[in-house]
Amino acid sequence: QLNLPENTDDWTKEDVNQWLESHKIDQKHREILTEQDVNGAVLKWLKKEHLVDMGITHGPAIQIEELFKELRK
């Protein structure tokens, strides 16, 4: 059970990391997002292209984008 703020805009980069870990996103990809200071407010704007530009491969980038879309519903 994750204990994250209800509003994703309030998520810290550590919260984002924890959420991605719960969805089995590889540590190396989570570390990239942490290094790039991606918090919840930033995550909602990220598209696959942004994630790929940061060095995340296409498969996980699509997965992260789709997971966040599902979360926002």
Rank of each mutant, 00 (worst) to 15 (best):
Q1E: 10
Q1M: 07
Q1V: 06
L2R: 06
L2H: 10
L2A: 05
L2Y: 03
L2T: 09
L2M: 10
N3Y: 05
N3Q: 03
N3P: 04
N3V: 01
N3M: 06
L4A: 04
L4E: 01
L4M: 07
L4P: 03
L4Y: 08
L4I: 08
L4N: 06
P5R: 05
P5A: 01
P5S: 07
P5I: 08
P5C: 03
P5G: 02
P5T: 04
P5Y: 04
P5N: 09
P5F: 05
E6I: 05
E6V: 09
E6W: 02
E6Q: 07
N7W: 04
N7C: 08
N7T: 05
N7I: 03
N7Q: 07
N7R: 08
N7H: 09
N7E: 08
N7K: 09
T8L: 14
T8S: 07
T8Q: 06
T8F: 12
T8A: 11
T8M: 13
T8K: 08
T8V: 11
T8R: 05
T8N: 04
D9V: 05
D9Y: 08
D9R: 07
D9G: 12
D10L: 06
D10R: 07
D10H: 10
W11I: 10
W11F: 11
W11M: 09
W11R: 00
T12V: 02
T12S: 08
T12E: 05
K13P: 08
K13L: 08
K13V: 10
K13H: 10
D15R: 02
D15S: 03
V16R: 00
V16H: 00
V16I: 09
V16Y: 02
N17E: 09
N17V: 07
N17T: 10
N17F: 11
N17G: 06
Q18E: 12
Q18H: 03
W19H: 04
W19S: 00
W19R: 00
L20P: 00
L20F: 02
E21Y: 11
E21D: 08
E21C: 09
E21I: 13
S22T: 07
S22K: 11
H23G: 01
H23E: 11
H23P: 00
H23C: 05
H23L: 11
H23R: 11
H23A: 07
K24C: 12
K24E: 13
K24T: 09
K24D: 11
I25N: 00
I25R: 00
I25C: 04
I25Q: 05
I25W: 01
I25T: 05
I25G: 01
D26R: 04
D26T: 06
D26Y: 02
D26I: 13
D26H: 03
D26A: 04
Q27G: 06
Q27F: 11
Q27R: 05
Q27I: 03
Q27L: 06
Q27W: 05
K28L: 11
K28H: 12
K28S: 10
K28W: 07
K28R: 06
K28Y: 13
K28Q: 11
H29G: 12
H29A: 14
H29Q: 13
H29F: 05
H29L: 13
R30T: 04
R30P: 01
E31T: 04
E31Q: 09
I32Q: 05
I32D: 02
I32P: 01
I32W: 04
L33G: 02
L33S: 01
L33D: 00
L33M: 13
L33A: 01
T34Y: 09
T34S: 04
T34P: 01
T34K: 04
E35Q: 06
E35C: 04
E35K: 10
E35H: 08
E35A: 08
Q36R: 15
Q36W: 13
Q36Y: 13
Q36M: 13
Q36V: 12
Q36T: 13
Q36I: 09
D37K: 15
D37A: 14
D37Y: 13
D37F: 14
V38E: 02
V38T: 12
V38I: 12
V38P: 02
V38L: 07
V38Y: 12
V38A: 11
N39E: 05
N39L: 00
N39I: 01
N39G: 08
N39C: 03
G40F: 09
G40S: 01
G40M: 10
G40P: 06
G40W: 01
G40K: 04
G40A: 02
G40C: 01
A41E: 14
A41W: 15
A41I: 10
A41R: 12
V42Y: 15
V42W: 14
L43H: 00
L43C: 13
L43Q: 03
L43R: 02
L43W: 02
L43A: 15
L43M: 09
K44A: 13
K44M: 11
K44Q: 13
W45K: 15
W45V: 14
W45C: 15
W45S: 15
W45R: 15
W45F: 11
W45I: 14
L46Q: 11
L46N: 04
L46K: 13
L46T: 08
L46S: 06
L46Y: 12
L46F: 12
L46H: 06
L46E: 02
H50R: 15
L51V: 02
L51A: 04
L51R: 02
L51M: 08
L51D: 02
L51Q: 02
L51H: 03
L51I: 01
L51W: 01
V52M: 13
V52I: 04
D53M: 10
D53F: 03
D53L: 11
D53E: 10
M54S: 06
M54Y: 14
M54F: 14
G55D: 00
G55E: 07
I56T: 13
T57I: 14
T57A: 15
H58R: 14
G59S: 15
G59T: 15
P60R: 14
P60G: 15
P60V: 14
P60C: 15
P60N: 15
P60E: 15
P60S: 15
P60A: 14
A61G: 07
A61H: 01
A61W: 00
A61R: 03
A61Y: 00
A61F: 02
I62M: 14
I62A: 15
I62E: 15
I62V: 13
L67E: 05
L67Y: 12
L67K: 15
F68T: 08
F68E: 04
K69I: 09
K69Q: 13
K69A: 12
K69C: 12
E70N: 11
E70F: 09
E70I: 12
K73P: 14
